[in-house]
Design a protein around this nucleic acid. Structure first.
Lengths: 165, 165
DNA sequence: GCGGTAATACTCGGATAAGTCTTGTCCGAGTCCTTATGG
DNA sequence: CCATAAGGACTCGGACAAGACTTATCCGAGTATTACCGC
């Protein structure tokens, strides 16, 4: 019962990509360097997000990754689902059907009470994460960053972004 | 990002234990038989719940497990935390501190925006599961069970419960 | 000088191992009941 | 016949393997650049 660190990495990556100007891209290795992460493993998460349509990859020299859609349309849940998978945490194995006093098929029209409770809780979880979108994250991070650091980040992005077009 | 099946097993186990009359107990093997589960692995979950103070174990002949406190005071979150552990799903590794543009210690007084969002979502998740307590589960299961099955369950409990005192 | 082409350097993408956690299993510790024995 | 104590059977508890998933890594596929060659 834990979320892989790939989700955290991917969220920070998307927050960084949201800073890029229109059309610009950042290579996977550059992203890993900026965030102080292992390039090879981050690449795996970037692939997952690429498949999910969160980021758009561009191959070749001066290629890299950029957001595939407006930052406003990317939530923390989108990232989590892309990297970690969207399957429910709780998996009902229909225990009520088994055993000497197991329920008949006719009694199982409605979902199991226990599974239903977990499903409701998870629904709230997804909803809460869906509410948080990239611009909010970016602005909150910016609010807590010192001006000197902001300037360094801006400079680094300008130096490392592949300005395609 | 998934919850172990031990949580589901434990929840059904507690729902069954809630049916026992005061002072009665059910052996781990009997519980496993009723639910159609593997006795050895269910025993592991029962140990965890025993350590967490959800069930009370009694050794020896005609021993077994019973709820350690009123069913009203046992929630699905209690069971989940006992079996799965109460640690947060999302673990912040302070990515913002790393890399060439890492934040200084002074900028990290407040929690990371990403970690804060996940923490909020998880708080809601815990809250939702804490709301669901055993009597509610039991009544919902009873509402969906056919009368014949209810009688069989009552009979089985009477036959297999160790009526200590 | 200019256009076309082939080589090249750089990037992503999927397939492939190592580590850690969940899942599954076993045997020893502890407790109560039963039974035998002596008074 | 009753009290007591020893033995046995049954139960939980923690320590011990097997499998699955996360984590980590590599090399091949693809593309834009660039250099070179012919015209």
């Amino acid at each position: 019962m834990k979320i892989g660190k790939g989700v955290e990495w991917s969220a920070h990556t998307c927050a960084l990509l949201a800073l890029l100007p229109e059309g610009a891209a950042l290579a996977g290795e550059a992203l890993a360097e900026f965030l102080g992460l292992q390039p090879t493993y981050l690449a795996k998460q970037l692939q997952a997000m690429s498949r999910a349509g969160i980021v758009k990859a561009k191959r070749g020299v001066s290629g890299g990754y950029r957001l595939a859609r407006p930052a406003e349309d990317i939530s923390l849940w989108d990232i989590t689902a892309a990297v970690e998978g969207a399957m429910p945490l709780f998996r009902c194995t229909e225990v009520r059907r088994a055993g000497p006093c197991g329920a008949a098929a006719a009694e199982c029209k409605r979902p199991c009470a226990i599974a239903a409770a977990f499903r409701t809780a998870e629904s709230g979880y997804r909803e809460a994460l869906s509410t948080v979108r990239l611009p909010q994250i970016v602005s909150e991070i910016a609010a807590g960053a010192a001006p000197a650091r902001k300037r360094r980040i801006t400079r680094w992005v300008e130096q490392n972004a592949a300005l395609a077009i």
